Simulated scan of single mutants.
Amino acid sequence: MSPNFEKAIEALEQRIAYAFRDRSLVARALTHRSAVPGDRVAHESYQRDEFLGDRVLALVVADMLIRAHPRADEGDLARRLNQLVRKETCAEVAIALDLGAGIRLGAGERQSGGRRKGAILADVAEAVIAAIYLDGGFDAARAFVDRNWRPRMEALSGPLRDAKTTLQEWAQGKGLPTPTYVMTDRSGPDHAPEFTVAVSITGGPCGEGRGKSKREAEMTAATGVLVREGIWSADNG
């Protein structure tokens, strides 16, 4: 491990409020596949850790929700869970903790702005959870998730059904086909793309949305239709 990477890990430990006994775990959690030879990707990059961290995150958040909302039904809890463990939320946490500063990337990924890519940041956030779990156990991982996801849980507002789900249910209620989404444009550099997506419902309303990911653009398009049709207020978007 290079001295510079050691310093990056020390700085990261300060930001995440956790000191690793085995720093090789967090080193792996910060290593993108582009920085590892192909035959060693599975064991020296964060891919397997991201898989584990995703499951630990879901369990901790589910437990937080059960305790915070004792009267909520399964559907309500599931919608809250989906909001909190989705990639966009994980990327927000990564940005807040500046996890991008410590990521090891291959030359090509560095040049294309990999430290700022939402998908990479989200994966690293989950991998760091796994590293903490492997290093300090479930309680340490739960404490990390609680510190960084509880404020987001408490701040959840607006409709818990996402826009795409709500639009689909509305269309079905009207006897209309399932909405279809088509990407019509992609612009901007690789590290900060903007997508444009059109949504259409045969015999029903159409809309268009833009976002930093295709999913975000789809949500924006669906939200526009819901607001126009009076299903949601403008504040919901």
Rank of each mutant, 00 (worst) to 15 (best):
E218C: 15
I129P: 05
P179R: 02
G203Q: 10
L30I: 06
G137L: 00
D139A: 13
L59R: 15
A96V: 06
S233Y: 02
G158W: 09
P189K: 11
D39N: 14
A27W: 04
V36D: 00
A143Y: 01
E92Q: 14
G230M: 08
R215T: 15
H32Y: 13
H43M: 07
A217L: 05
R142I: 00
N236G: 04
D76E: 15
R115L: 11
V61Y: 02
R23E: 12
R150S: 04
R210A: 08
D185N: 15
G118M: 12
T89N: 12
A96L: 04
G102H: 01
R48I: 07
P205L: 06
R15D: 07
Q111N: 13
D123K: 11
T223H: 12
S200L: 06
G75K: 00
T223R: 13
P159Y: 00
E109H: 14
N148R: 07
R55A: 09
H191V: 04
M64R: 07
L99R: 00
W149P: 00
L176C: 06
D73Y: 03
M183T: 14
V227N: 01
P37T: 03
D76L: 14
D123T: 04
G38R: 06
R115M: 11
D235E: 15
R48S: 13
Q47W: 09
L57A: 15
E109W: 07
D146K: 10
A131V: 12
G53H: 04
L57G: 12
L30S: 07
M64Y: 06
N236C: 14
A68E: 13
S2V: 03
R110V: 08
L12K: 04
L226N: 05
S157I: 02
L12P: 07
R79W: 14
G118T: 13
L160W: 02
V227Y: 06
A58S: 14
D76C: 01
F144Q: 03
F195K: 00
G237H: 14
R79H: 12
A155C: 05
L105G: 15
P189N: 11
E10K: 04
I66P: 01
P177C: 01
R228E: 15
G158V: 03
L176Y: 08
P189A: 08
M183F: 04
I129H: 05
Q14G: 12
A192G: 13
L81N: 02
E92M: 13
V61E: 12
E6K: 05
A171W: 08
P151Q: 06
A140T: 02
E88P: 05
G211P: 02
A58N: 07
R110I: 10
L25A: 10
E216M: 13
A78S: 05
A119W: 11
L12M: 14
E218L: 03
S34G: 03
C90G: 14
P179F: 11
